[in-house]
């Protein structure tokens, strides 16, 4: 199965399950589960924005992700809900981070941007305590939303696990998720490989292969897909043999519906009950999105390399 097939079937699954990304009343409720409402919608928007940007308009995949983006934007009532969230939770960073995904795809709401700018000018906003990787993400979200970033990228990067160039054998799941997001922020989610400084690019070129290999062996499909997205986002991608092997293993984990389970434990729990939908939405939506994201970036990368006449096999 090719990378392209993984991408198409993953997006088929997303399209078929788009209603599960819809915002219900609990998206605005004080006791609502943000991780089950805004987070999946923001991830859908970000992945579709990236896939759209790296796919030619003539490609049916481009049409599919554009339709999904329209669907997601409608869920926010063309951005009105961001303004509402701003009045309910003025110091929350997640609405701005979700909004930034839409803004990067040209879906903007000037009223929200103006009111977010007022809060972002406070010392309290700039001093929000958060993980270094998240801080980098908020700085990038500010930039993408037309706000003045509250800090500088090199300083924020230096505080992250990846930015400090740690011994690669200290990699574990949490470090893995932190590093993939650092690369997503630095490269504008796969659009700008040049955002990765040269020392980081060398570091990733050296160590992505063992991280990818061990995450795949541990059946951490979600993190593996994020690492594959990183591999397709950096200035010098891994050897084609490394990518071929990894994509074959991801393809083997993909259910016929297109869903990719987060990790092996989800597959074990589903057992041999091989119905149309063996996994709960929360157990597979993120990894399926990440597979589509990584596959689109990989396909685009291989296409660029082909065009440059270097003839790397796909």
């Amino acid at each position: 199965m090719s990378v392209r097939e993984v991408e198409e079937t993953a997006l088929e699954w997303v399209w078929a399950h788009r209603d599960r990304f819809a915002l219900g009343d609990d998206a605005l409720a004080a006791d609502g589960q943000v991780n089950r409402t805004w987070k999946p919608l923001g991830e859908l928007a970000q992945v579709c924005a990236s896939v759209s940007a790296c796919t030619p308009p003539s490609d049916p995949v481009h049409t599919r992700v554009s339709d999904l983006l329209d669907f997601a934007w409608q869920q926010t009532r063309q951005g009105e809900l961001f303004l509402l969230m701003q009045s309910l939770e003025p110091f929350a960073t997640y609405p701005l981070e979700v909004y930034a995904a839409f803004a990067s795809a040209g879906r903007r709401h000037t009223g929200y941007e103006a009111s977010a700018a007022v809060v972002a000018r406070t010392r309290g906003w700039r001093l929000t305590e958060q993980y270094p990787t998240r801080r980098l993400g908020v700085i990038e979200a500010e930039r993408r939303s037309g706000l003045s970033p509250h800090g500088r990228v090199p300083q924020a990067l230096g505080r992250t696990w990846l930015g400090g160039l740690p011994e690669p054998w200290t990699f574990e799941r949490a470090a893995g998720y932190a590093l993939t997001h650092v690369v997503f922020h630095l490269t504008e989610w796969g659009r700008a490989a040049q955002g990765v400084p040269p020392d980081l690019a060398d570091y990733l070129r050296h160590w992505l292969p063992p991280w990818l290999d061990t995450c795949l062996e541990a059946r951490m499909w979600d993190l593996s897909c994020e690492l594959l997205a990183v591999a397709a986002s950096v200035p010098s991608p891994p050897d084609p043999a490394v990518l071929d092997d990894a994509w074959q293993r991801v393809a083997a984990a993909q259910h016929t519906s297109g869903a990719i389970p987060e990790e092996g434990a989800v597959q074990d729990a589903a057992g041999s009950a091989d119905g149309a939908a063996p996994y709960a939405f929360t157990d597979c939506y993120h990894s399926t999105l990440m597979a589509a994201f990584a596959a689109a970036l990989t396909t685009a990368r291989l296409r660029d390399v082909d065009r440059a006449g270097q003839g790397v096999p796909g």
């Binding site: 574990e172 799941r173 949490a174 061990t214 062996e217 541990a218």
Partner: peptide, 9 residues
């Protein structure tokens, strides 16, 4: 076989 367990916090 590889042994995988993540440190927790």
């Amino acid at each position: 076989d590889g042994v995988f367990r993540d440190s927790r916090e």
